[in-house]
Design a protein around this nucleic acid. Sequence first.
DNA 1: TGCTGTGAAGTGCTTCACAGCG
DNA 2: CGCTGTGAAGCACTTCACAGCA
Lengths: 213, 213
Amino acid sequence: MITPPKSSHIPRATIQRLATYVQVLENFVRDNVEVISSNPLAEACGVNGSQVRKDLAYLGEFGIRGVGYQVKSLIAAITSSLGVDREWRMALIGVGNLGKALLNHGEFRARGFNIVAIFDCDPFKIGEIVHGLEVHCTRDLKDIVSEQGIEIGIITTPPERAQRAAQHLMDAGITSILNYAPARIKVPERIHVEYVDFFHYLYSLAFNHQQPR
Amino acid sequence: MITPPKSSHIPRATIQRLATYVQVLENFVRDNVEVISSNPLAEACGVNGSQVRKDLAYLGEFGIRGVGYQVKSLIAAITSSLGVDREWRMALIGVGNLGKALLNHGEFRARGFNIVAIFDCDPFKIGEIVHGLEVHCTRDLKDIVSEQGIEIGIITTPPERAQRAAQHLMDAGITSILNYAPARIKVPERIHVEYVDFFHYLYSLAFNHQQPR
DNA sequence: TGCTGTGAAGTGCTTCACAGCG
DNA sequence: CGCTGTGAAGCACTTCACAGCA
């Protein structure tokens, strides 16, 4: 039986793993696996079986005791709980190399995360068409955000302009920010910022590589 | 006085924060800040002051009591402890859109993480020159890895080919893998894999956005 | 005096172990 | 009988509080 979510607090670590479960479950769908129990799923994700069961239990009861979980309906349950089973409209600030690379990365769109407006403060870039979108002046952000129903802002500016970009986004009422700029930004408590830094991973690899163990 | 590292175990969480400290400290250098104490550094990184002091203490004693830390020498101390103050030679497998985007992303090279050889299993791509590098057949990986002194492998294949790419890397003696493919890979204990998934961040944003609080 | 470095206390996540159900 | 869902125990990281040094 499928029961609705427990109202309790979901740990941040769980949210991150749920994203992994979806990724792995989608690969199981591709291999025509219909039912999976917690232990093999856990192994495929590199975590403990209890962990998987506890994580899923936060969202409700989707398992069948003695059997396991239906792969497809589990994906649906997780994506629905996370709120990623719908379209999210996003604005991108900073149309440099990185910004262009993200625009070309079709996966975002395929998952319902659509970049629908792009901005830059460089007058030479404004008006240019990149990947089918016109580059707007950052000053017009507020109007376009409300016109277009944008809920997430992506910062791909150089580090020294990241704070100003964040300010523009907040002024436009955006509370969810994905920051690719290599700088921390100061925001009030209620604003949610996720930092993407390619070097964190490389630093981990380098550190572990040189460790003698 | 600067003392050498404590030999004790460094938590994984600390390693991740150290990368953040470097990023923030570099921005302080840009602003000509020469000395910083733990609390302002902590605030800029969004963590607790004790946390910063404890993290830094894992590496040794670089602080001056009553004063703080020298920004430049602190950066040097952290990067040296992490092992990121030298060149790292890397191989990339999977020369598709994502692979090409990484090759064009100059920051890797600027930090000493050099992609020095690229591979693909598509015969149409082999021999092509991308960003100044010839695309090699994945079968030649082992020879090129030892010739070129490559220590890190980057996987940018589609998910269904990620496991095979990982196998090729391991056969070539690589123990550090950065996986951009949306799939988990099975590896022995001693292999270190870091997973890069753009959607983890978006999933977090989406989840928090829809939460009522 | 001010800030670092660190034992001790606190917190939250992970794992265990098993009751409960299909 | 097997696997889920979950209280309890265990563990690791975080924060506190203050001794110790410049």
